[in-house]
Each structure stands twice: as C-alpha cells, then as structure tokens.
Design a binder for these strands. Structure first.
Lengths: 263, 263
DNA sequence: TTATATTGTGTCATTATAACGCATTGAAAA
DNA sequence: TTTTCAATGCGTTATAATGACACAATATAA
C-alpha cells in the first residue's frame, strides 16, 4: 500500500485553524466567465483524484465582508483585481454535499476528519459570477492540488458535476443572460479594444442565438457606451473592421441605471 | 428598581436551544410588501423598548432549506401561505449589529448572554422580499414582544433603523423596481379582482412616478396576462371601471420567461 | 336634472425594430 | 498584377411600439 502524499500546508491550516479563522457554515462560490475564440468559457476545478468538477470557492474570514471574500477567492484564482463581480443567488439546500467533498479531499492524504469537524457541517453558499478578460489572464493553479481549466459552456452538459455545482453554474448562466437584457456587458469580457463583430459574437454566445449584424450594431451604438476609434483590426482575411472601446463613464452610468427605462 | 418581565418561552428556547436547532451564523430577513390605499407598505417590527425599526427575520433550522426558512418566517408573521418570495441579496458585512440587537432584547428581561453565545456571533443574512395581498391579511404579533406595523414607503426616511435593516429595505425596493421592468407584478399585491386604475396606481407607487393612463392600459393588455371581466367596480363617485383578474397560466409563464425578449 | 371627475376608446406623430440591399475593402487565389 | 470573395460599412423599407393627446360615455353628487 502506497504512502499517502503529505498534507499541503494550506490544507493543514484549514484543518486546524479553519474554525478560528472563518465564519462557520458559510462559503462563497465563484462562477468565472471568460470569452475566447468565440466561446464563452467557465473556469472550473478538476479536483485531484476525483472525477467531479466544481467551481472555485472559499470561506469567509471572521471579520471579512462576504463580497470581499468573493473578491479574495477571485484574486487568488486569477491574479486579477479589476473584476466585475455579481452576487446572484444563495444556495442553502440541506442536501448540499460540500461536506463529503471536503471529507474526500482530506482522505486522499490519509487524514480523517472528526465527525463534528468544522468542515463537515452544513454550509450555505453565496454564489457570485465574475466576468474577466481572458486575454489578460493566466490560469493560476492553487495549493489545494486541483487543476483549473477553462471549459466552453457548450461542453458543460458532458461534464460530471457534483449536484450543487451543477445548479450553481446553471443559475449563473441564467442570471448572466437576464442581466444582458438590461445591463451593459462586455467591458470585462473583452480586451480594451475590440471590433463590433467580436462584441456581437459575445452576445450571440451568451444568448445562444444568432443576431442580425446590422441591427446589432445600430442598437449597440444607440446605447451610447462605445467609442469608435480611427483604427481597424487588420490581419483578418477580409475587410478590416473598426476598433471600439467602451466609454468608461457612460458604461458605468449604464451599469447603475440600466439600458432601458421601459416604464 | 422594577422587576424585569419574565422571559417568554420562545426566547428562552432560542437562548438555550438555539445552537442546537439552528445553523450558526445564518439568518433570513424578509421585506414584506403590501399595497393599500394607493400606498406601498412594508411590514416592519417596532421592537419593544427600542426606538429602532427592523424587518421580520429568523433563523434557519439545521435541516431546513434556506428558502423554506424564509417561507416559515413569513407564515409566522402573516399566516399566509401563497406568497411571492424572492431572494434578492445576501448581507454579510462584518459590522452588522444583529448581535447588539439580540443582546438588548435579552437584557430587557434581565438575561445576560455570555460573550461567546450563539446569538452574539456574526450573522450573515439572506434578504428576501415578499409580496402579499394586503386585503387578505391581518397582522399577527409574535411572541418576541415586538409590534408589527405597516409603514408606507414614503415614510421610511423618517424612521430610525439600525444600519443593517435600513440597507436591506433600500435594496429590496431597488430590486422590486428592477423586477418590475421585466417581470409581471401585482398578482400578490392586489385582491383577486381589481381595476386598471388600481393596477396603475400600484405601478406608479412602486416606480414613484406618474404614468399615462391610456398608454399604461395598452401596454398592460399587450402582455396578455389579464382577463377582463364583465363587471365594473361601482361605488366610486364617477364612471365605474371594469374589473380584471390575472390569467394565472399566462402570468406564471411571464414570471418564468419575462415580459420582454429584448435581444 | 345637471355638473363633474373619471373611465373607455381612439388617433396621430414619432421612434424603435426586423428584415434586407448594395457598395467597399483587404487578403487570398488566379 | 489582377481577380475573386467573404466580411464589413452604411443604408432602406415595412412594420410595430411608444408617447402625447382628443373626445365620448357614465356613475355619483349637487
């Protein structure tokens, strides 16, 4: 029988000091969206020696705002600081099986958690989704011995999730689509300069349906959140499209007030 | 010095068994909206011997879904079961002062909580807003020695809240207004039969701005969620308006799919 | 009976949306 | 170098939605 690998320091810390450092029973889960090569991707964790996927998560320090905890998790994963982060739901079903995942993690290292251990209680999780610029990002693997990978949302149905994370990802996507209908999106998913066709592809990908090129451009411009640059993106096989940036001031205003008044 | 009133049984239970019964560090807060006499009202608690107002809240049983806990709180307060309930935000700032409120509550009864008592730890709260039919409701006062009252939202700024509940109420109103833009509303705030002017007043009250009577009617009807009845509401001083009901099936569909496609 | 405020219904100009046309352009093929 | 071609820029037209307003109908009160 082979010896178990030794317990990483971070896990040891969690094991011993978790109940001192963190709030009991609360965790945050982050669904991190990125956009690359016409595909909307989610940063998922392939937990070592498990064939289940999960989303990055973490615990809330005893004196930490819960939003701040989500930011911290995000920064640990992505190294990025300027991130769009949106709380979208709280998951608090009693059958959430975080506990068994934690148990399994530690058992890999031959460490058995006592039955009443802090990590094995029922956790309520706040779900956040984040939008990040894929091009400005490199995957950072963590010390929990799990691999981060970008997975295109078109492949999600083929993956095996634990039940909780499956519904978290589904609900995050749903919320993102809803948000698209009344808030601007794109600033955090695209590089600083982008073309109209690129922006359109992002919308089409999130909504999962084709949009008319000319009507899309007209509507997008009517929001008044874009700056058209005097440059084009050369190198493509055909006519070079103009580059745009977001007008930061107007974008922020639209984020606050919404794109439509409606009533 | 007068003798403190004796501790109610429910509070005693909370004091002694709280940590056994409930999840640690998690609470739910419910902002309950009702509509009456052209005013949008919120059900608030005037905690005994305190000059601060708060919103009804409660704890989550160890084996209870967090949504279910919100329903339970609501049912305890209103006696109603068929309620529109929407989770809108999680409040998790470390400066939340629930603890001191709990402390004060017990000190009225001459009971001092030990420093590490379950109730005095930091709580993270899931905020829900509920919409209920005011006409089908009677205030139920609880055993926690606090008074329930309906307060019109126009009076909110005059009230003294503890900081947390102030932001909870503000955010709830904001969420309700946002929801109005893309989801149907009214079924749970109005009696079964209602008139178009009544429905309009509801919208005007929530949005806090006047709407054109004729355009409102046209838009409302275009959603296809109303049934026009062959009755009118007599008794008013002028022309009797027609009565309407919601078409339940189409209303539910609109709740699921939204009122607009937009993209 | 009349006055009055409110409701029911409709119009019209303006704006937004959906569907589609055609000229331009940059790179690749000939 | 010239031609081809697909993507892009810029536009048109028909239809639908919206905002602003007019006028007739009606239930009560004067």
């Amino acid at each position: 029988m082979s010896k178990s690998p030794s317990l990483p320091a971070s896990l040891k810390q969690l094991l011993i000091k978790g109940d001192e450092l963190f709030l009991p029973g609360i965790s945050v889960d982050c669904v991190i969206f990125g956009f690359h090569e016409n595909s909307l991707k989610i940063l998922l964790l392939d937990i070592a020696d498990s064939n289940k996927w999960s989303v990055p998560g973490g615990f809330v320090l005893k004196n930490e705002d819960i939003d701040a905890a989500a930011y911290r998790v995000l920064k640990e994963r992505t190294g990025l600081k300027d991130i769009f982060l949106q709380q979208f739901n709280v998951f608090g079903q009693p059958n959430r099986i975080e506990a068994s995942a934690h148990k399994a993690t530690f058992e890999q290292y031959g460490t058995k958690l006592s039955k009443d251990h802090w990590l094995l209680q029922r956790f309520v999780s706040a779900g956040y989704y984040a939008l990040i610029d894929y091009t400005n990002f490199t995957v950072q693997n963590d010390s929990f011995n799990s691999l981060n990978s970008w997975i295109g949302i078109e492949h999600l149905s083929k993956l095996s999730f634990d039940h909780d994370h499956d519904s978290i990802v589904k609900k995050a996507l749903e919320s993102l689509r809803t948000q698209l209908a009344y808030l601007p999106i794109g600033k955090n998913l695209l590089p600083k300069k982008f073309t109209m066709p690129e922006l359109q592809k992002l919308y089409e990908t999130i909504l999962n349906k084709p949009l008319d090129r000319r009507n899309f451009q007209r509507k997008m411009l009517s929001f008044g959140i874009l700056n058209k640059l005097n440059e084009t993106r050369k190198g493509g096989a055909h006519k070079a499209p103009y580059l745009y940036t977001f007008n930061d001031k107007k974008y922020q205003k639209a984020l606050k007030d919404g794109l439509y008044g409606s009533w």
